[in-house]
């Protein structure tokens, strides 16, 4: 198929960006979206044009590195996938595809479509862990975890930290991301000991970094490639309120 790509180009964090259009032809429907950009880039290099910079790594939907806002949706027009799993069969011959970087204050653009998501790491550094030193653990079966809790915890732990929730939210709120980690750990008996400190510290960091507040629109859940539920946000609110009230 033949397409027109309208891509955000920005030389560096400080530079002013703008959209550029690139025609591209003979794209197979079985080609993945990122492979399509590879093809474009190979052509651009041959034409002496700086290739489009974009984040990607595992290309199988698990590392969370890819991050494009395609035609108004994070990770593009398909459900429960990352951009690297998006295939060109989702588009039609002659389409114009608009590709933008994640837009959020705490995710500044580094170059073109690449944003800095270090803010996520910073939030997790402020409490997204269980304090257990190596070598001090009891036998793994000494802690009984009912199947239901283990499964719910796993549902939340499936978060890949891609930032689609922030990109989709009209408020650039990071609540789904934070709540996924809070839920993952708070649902496990091992994680309960420091659940209150964790919730307070992570929420404080999230606010400090300039993410918006949650107004429960549900856009995050709708766009999450791993189907993380907003019921985790309710759990985060519960954990947080209890932590504040019981203090």
């Amino acid at each position: 198929m033949d397409l027109t790509l309208k891509i955000w180009r920005q030389a560096s964090a400080k530079a002013k960006g703008k959209f550029e259009s690139y025609p591209i032809s003979n794209i197979s429907a079985d080609c993945s979206f990122l492979e399509m950009i590879d093809i474009l880039n190979e052509k651009l290099v041959r034409d002496n044009i700086d290739p489009v910079a974009f984040d990607h790594d595992c290309r199988e939907g698990i590392c969370g590195m890819c991050s494009l806002y395609v035609n108004g949706r994070p990770h593009g027009p398909d459900d429960d996938i990352t951009t690297c799993q998006l295939h060109m069969r989702k588009f039609k011959n002659g389409d114009t595809i608009t590709i933008e970087p994640w837009r959020a204050g705490p995710f500044p653009v580094i170059k073109d479509l690449i944003v800095d998501r270090n803010a996520f790491d910073k939030i997790l550094q402020d409490g997204g862990f269980i304090s257990a030193n190596t070598g001090s653990a009891p036998d793994a079966n000494a802690i009984l975890i009912p199947n239901r809790e283990a499964e719910q915890s796993m549902d939340a732990a499936a978060c890949i930290g891609c930032g689609a929730c922030v990109a989709a939210c009209k408020n650039s709120s990071a609540m789904l991301f934070v709540s996924a980690k809070i839920s993952h750990l708070a649902l496990l008996p091992q994680g309960k000991a420091e659940a209150a400190i964790r919730a307070k510290a992570m929420v404080a960091k999230m606010d400090e970094l300039g993410f918006g507040g949650c107004t429960n629109t549900g856009a995050c859940e709708a766009e999450c490639p791993k189907d993380i539920s907003i019921s985790n946000i309710a759990r985060l609110n519960r954990e947080f309120l209890c932590a504040v009230i019981l203090e």
């Binding site: 257990a132 653990a137 036998d139 802690i143 009984l144 009912p146 199947n147 283990a150 915890s153 091992q190």
Partner: peptide
């Protein structure tokens, strides 16, 4: 030891209904 430590740090391994791994 790896399994013990991973469980202690919150890795949600699959469990059966009695709560065992």
């Amino acid at each position: 030891l790896i399994i013990d430590h991973s469980v202690a740090t919150g890795v949600p391994f699959a469990r059966d209904y009695g709560g065992l791994l």
